[in-house]
Design a protein around this nucleic acid. Structure first.
Lengths: 304, 304
DNA sequence: GTCCCGTTAG
DNA sequence: CTAACGGGAC
């Protein structure tokens, strides 16, 4: 069912620095890479890394990803079980943590460089961490976009306003700090289900947060900032429903299947042809005690 | 190690009503009983009946008591898992519950009568419930005496004052409402360790609540009210340490053994000769997740 | 240390 | 519904 891989990596075949030309103050030195062995990345909103530690180990045992992007750590930096994670083979990590809320981490079998954490839209939330895989230069953004509260109104609901400003800041950052040819992956809980088939009912959710027009437009701006490719839709097209999240409040979440696709893995255009597989690990949503999000797994293969 | 019994009961051999004579308004009709088969009762401060439900079932499976007295239910009446308890064979219960704190219950395989709940010392705490085993007339008091806070000073610490007033009210109730020949059992967390060998250090705990002189005197008054017999000390004497409680805050509670005997099972004088066995079920304190109290088990045998 | 509860957040 | 937190209690 699921292809099994040994720990692998993107080998750099052609390495050259690129200046985008649109920006005089390029932050990162950029590397063009070519995968010769499959490389896999799992993104998962764990809803508490402490409560989900056992399941994280199970995910590792079963899929053995090279990189894991976690969102909603919900633990202060000292409370994240880094020792158990390192013991499971992920000795390298880039993390932004805060007590109780938010928190993102990139876990890696291989050394990471250029680690940065970002706090957008005038709040110190731990929602965005970046790192490059040192050996290949591939950049990884792990992002947890604000949920946005209940009322889809910027003025009545400051959380919704924050969400939209967060997405705008993210778009500005990508447009201003990287080049189109920088090989990067963006993985995370983006808290927006942009397409009709990203929700169980396009009509019924038109006015509920995660599927409103204004959020979809804001996410589209982020996507355009670096011509990001939505790997899931690149592979399966837009015509089939794909969900990664099912509310806790429905006991029969699988039979009713009122899900949404809130978790995404994007790649920059240079990696588009390397997309070998993308899948939602729905099985994990059945494990106990569950996160409300299922992990998403991307496999990058050989570019012939 | 532990004698195993089938569900059993006290058969009434000689049944006659008794008037105490000291009180014109006797509340209960009284029955003199004689056990012909072993009868057992377990008293346990569970520190949340919800968190300890699995362990309660294990206790039942292993010791099969006729009556179970629970303290610190810590659940509102609708939150107590009575269905699971009934499924385990205890279809009859007398309960006083309140959300969050306190809460006592008498669980029984056999029908109960004369159920009463009491709230002493001007507070509506759920700390005392009474019932009679219908078939035998033996009365059972399940009591959770207030802990009393940290400072052993009636004036500085209202909780300590409440504890002492609670014990006084309890003594008055027993003296005023029952006769010496009424066969009754008092089981519960009395939150007092009266004897030197009821604590790990008589000297070090002389001024800590549960072992102060004034509490011991107050408990002694309760004991005298009906000439209650302390079954544990009746059987083992006063010279050996016996503990039923070990603080959560010591990880190595068993090796250091800094315990106290806070949980007691008393009987009225008529049942004294029936005491067959009393034991602290220390094994249960090892189960996970533990209560800080171990259950106490009383067996009443045949009176020849 | 463990548990309840209300609050905040999702 | 699930989770973290802070406060109170033991």
């Amino acid at each position: 069912m699921f292809p099994q891989h040994r720990a692998s990596l993107l080998f750099s075949l052609i390495i050259f620095s690129v200046q985008t030309g649109r920006d005089c103050c390029q932050k990162h030195s950029i590397t063009r890479t070519m995968p010769v062995q499959p490389f896999s990345l799992i993104s998962w909103n764990v809803n508490s890394v402490r409560k989900r530690l056992d399941q994280l180990i199970r995910v590792i045992d079963r899929w053995d990803p090279d990189i894991i992007c976690l969102q909603e750590l919900k633990a202060g930096i000292d409370m994240v079980p880094v020792d158990a994670i390192a013991a499971a083979g992920y000795e390298h990590h880039a993390m932004a943590a805060q007590p109780g809320y938010n928190g993102v981490a990139i876990l890696s079998r291989l050394p990471l460089t250029d680690i940065e954490t970002f706090a957008w839209a005038d709040r110190q939330d731990a929602r965005h961490v970046f790192a490059r895989v040192a050996s290949t230069g591939v950049g990884v953004h792990c992002v947890y976009v604000p949920a946005g509260g209940d009322v889809p109104d910027r003025i009545a609901n400051p959380k919704f306003d924050f969400k939209l400003r967060y997405l705008d800041a993210l778009a500005d950052h990508f447009a201003g700090s990287y080049g189109f040819r920088d090989p990067m992956i963006l993985a995370g809980d983006l808290n927006v289900a942009p397409l009709p088939n990203d929700v169980w009912s396009h009509t019924k959710l038109k006015n509920v947060i995660t599927h409103t027009e204004i959020e979809i437009a804001a996410l589209e701006r982020v996507k355009r900032s670096l011509n990001w490719i939505d790997t899931q839709r690149e592979l399966v097209g837009d015509d089939d429903p794909v969900f990664t999240w099912w509310s806790y409040r429905a006991a029969d979440w699988e039979s009713t299947n009122k899900g949404r696709r809130l978790d995404h893995i994007w790649v920059t255009p240079g990696l588009k042809d390397d997309i070998a597989d993308v899948e939602v690990l729905t099985a994990v949503r059945h494990w106990s005690p569950p996160s409300d999000h299922a992990p998403v797994r991307l496999v990058l293969g050989t570019n012939p």
